[in-house]
């Protein structure tokens, strides 16, 4: 048994679904974006959503400094 919803109601529910999806996926998307940024871009304020992805210095090559620690010079392996 399906109610036949009025158009505004179904539109509102769809919007709610979109909002929930955004909340659930945004942190993951943001972290994936962060993994493709360079160190300086990660630290900029305000944060940027549009950037040129950089696969070279992503997380696989250099670890970002942990919060609370001071940023160190890039490790010798890369330089």
């Amino acid at each position: 048994m399906r109610f036949n919803r009025s158009t505004p109601a179904s539109l509102f529910l769809n919007l709610l679904v979109v909002a929930c999806t955004l909340i659930l996926t945004f942190p993951l998307v943001w972290i994936v974006m962060m993994s493709l940024k360079q160190q300086a871009e990660v630290m900029t304020w305000p944060p940027r959503f549009i950037f040129t992805p950089n696969l070279k210095t992503s997380a696989f090559c250099s670890m970002p400094p942990r919060p609370g620690q001071q940023a160190t010079a890039p490790s010798r392996l890369i330089s």
Partner: peptide, 9 residues
Amino acid sequence: LFASGVFLT
């Protein structure tokens, strides 16, 4: 919300 069965769910 997801049991409401609207299109996007």
